[in-house]
Design a protein around this nucleic acid. Sequence first.
DNA 1: GGAACACTGAAGGGATTGCTTGAGTATTCC
DNA 2: GGAATACTCAAGCAATCCCTTCAGTGTTCC
Lengths: 126, 126
Amino acid sequence: MIVKHMLDRSDSLDKAFHALADPTRRAMVDRLARGPASVSALAEPFEATLAAIVQHVQVLERAGLIETEKRGRTRTCRIAGSGFEQVEAWLTARRQLWERRFDALGALLAAPEEGPEASGDSGENP
Amino acid sequence: MIVKHMLDRSDSLDKAFHALADPTRRAMVDRLARGPASVSALAEPFEATLAAIVQHVQVLERAGLIETEKRGRTRTCRIAGSGFEQVEAWLTARRQLWERRFDALGALLAAPEEGPEASGDSGENP
DNA sequence: GGAACACTGAAGGGATTGCTTGAGTATTCC
DNA sequence: GGAATACTCAAGCAATCCCTTCAGTGTTCC
């Protein structure tokens, strides 16, 4: 059945931000940033079940934040740079927009020719 | 009374990442990065009801990503720098850990004398 | 004063999340 | 071969999420 409320959950930025919104998963990323680890090594600091940690690993991997490789009976996890680059790129782009806007406003205040308070700026003022 | 201040930092990061994990909310941030807007101006590009947008605004505000101010009957929303700084700080710190590790590995490969990599750490290179 | 406007709050419903338990598979050690 | 290890899968359940509708509240306009 087609579900009505289903917005593009497949967007990778959605998955990345969602994956990072959990403190356990962030702690796992923290640990992996210091070096690769197996799933059970990753699970050790936490009190959760191994099955729960496996699910967290899957969430992080589907989000492109980590990559894993199975060798024998152990799966080794490590940070994947591309996922983080995507997240940081999004944040940086927005910050640049915001700072540019800030600069423009500063310039306007520094050299007022027509007065910025009217309504011509960006339609934000009723 | 039970004190629960121990996880404040992770809690606010939780909220920030969670808020950014929704495409509608990211689009709203995108719009606000270009300048402040009222709630209904913010709602205009989307097909959702105004009530839904109001809820998104509340999520973003509780996450510290935007700040709002009510004047008369309109509420004006704008980007709040602090929330984004927190998110970017977390990402930057992890990236630095990860890159430092990367450098250390490079140094180890360049001049191996007492490599502790026998078998305890992780066999990332066969 | 009354109508239009811009939200605001509560209630609900369907989907998703995060966790647990229990069972199963594949690999390594003895 | 048998036991221990390291996951892996499926089912189920409480909590949360996101959206809708409907009924307000407070402002502005005529």
